[in-house]
Amino acid sequence: MDFLAAIEESGLATWVRESPSIFAYATVLAIHTFGLALIVGLSGAVGLRTLGFAPGVSLSALGRFFPLMWVGFWLNFASGLVLVAIDARVFLTMPTFYIKMLAIALALTTLRLLRKEVVGPEGTDDATATASAKGKLLAGALLLFWLTAVTSGRVTAYDAYIGRQTAGAVLVLGVLLLLGGQIGARVLRGGTGNERSTMSTIPSRR
């Protein structure tokens, strides 16, 4: 604990925590949100494409966005270090924080596997190709890990009990939205349930 207290008392941590300037704590948090938008948002879009939304988007061409995702990750690694340092004793003794770290590690590993599985060398793929079952599984896992990371990150600001309740609420809402989306999509498509039928010139089968 002395070590953690020393981190909190360091010059940088003290300034970020105690400065009234919006360029201290508030801006570090904003950078953490920019990073989230880049890594979670862009990799999430690749995940959605892999799952079959937006057919026609070339997966190999999406490979060009990976460096920007990593920019987002490193922004969050750096800003995250600062955010942990200013409250080291709280964060580093909190199970929720470690759940977040684990979820991020799993998401990044999944993202690497997903890239290997579905994003080939540029210009070699058919843009309308459907991803493999393994690719879809990885994409689904990626989205789930990111949701876990975002949720656990957010509830580090609350008591563990409220955090667990919130995680439950996120899960229930997620399942409801997923079911609602499935039903909605089926109704809109007149029951064909075939995503690609909108792409082809062949009339959809009944």
Partner: peptide
Amino acid sequence: VMHFVGLALLIGTVG
């Protein structure tokens, strides 16, 4: 959480 997931979706697709 909805606000953060929403902004990630917005930036990830519109961005």
